[in-house]
């Protein structure tokens, strides 16, 4: 009985974090997501991949969404079975051409020493990445990663 309850908690859980568009909060977002996914007992490699993908999406919201200025960044994380879903959202500039933005080495801000690899890294480190964006309204990046397959097999 007690075990079932514990299991139910692990099966479904979520957290939300909202913070102003400040570069100091990039580390906060990484720490929060690592603490949250710990309950799925990820490997060090998986944890690094998730932290890196989150760092990329949050940095994009701050640099590109809000152009280094004011705004709010929101992060939602949910666990469903052995899987984690992460959404990073901003109400900033938005992306005109998402296909172009996804190309490795495409950056709209080379003068800021950006390499254009952020989205490529997210796509390589997570199992699924979906970007929704409306110019002038904002961007929403949804990412999914399977951490443990055990719960799916039960």
């Amino acid at each position: 009985m007690g075990q079932e309850v514990t299991h139910a908690v692990l099966q479904q859980n979520y957290m939300k974090l909202q913070f102003p568009s400040l570069s100091a909060n990039e580390a906060l977002a990484r720490m929060a997501v690592s603490a949250f996914v710990m309950q799925l007992d990820p490997t060090m490699e998986q944890l690094t991949e998730i932290k890196t993908a989150v760092s990329e999406a949050v940095t994009n919201a701050i640099i590109h969404g809000y152009d280094g200025g004011e705004g709010e960044v929101r992060m939602y994380c949910a666990i469903d079975g052995g899987m984690v879903d992460i959404v990073i959202e901003d109400d900033g500039a938005g992306i005109e051409d998402i296909e172009e933005a996804r190309q490795p080495m495409f950056t709209s801000r080379p003068e800021l020493e950006r390499s254009g690899m952020g989205i490529t890294i997210m796509e390589n480190f997570m199992d699924e990445v979906v970007i929704d964006s409306t110019p002038g309204q904002g961007t929403k990046v949804r990412m999914r990663k399977v951490i443990s397959r055990t719960s799916e097999c039960q």
Binding site: K51, T52, E56, S115, G118
Partner: peptide, 13 residues
């Protein structure tokens, strides 16, 4: 301990 694409930009720059 940690690096994201910002490190790539630093190296390329």
């Amino acid at each position: 301990d940690f690096m994201d694409s910002s490190g790539l930009g630093l190296i390329l720059g």
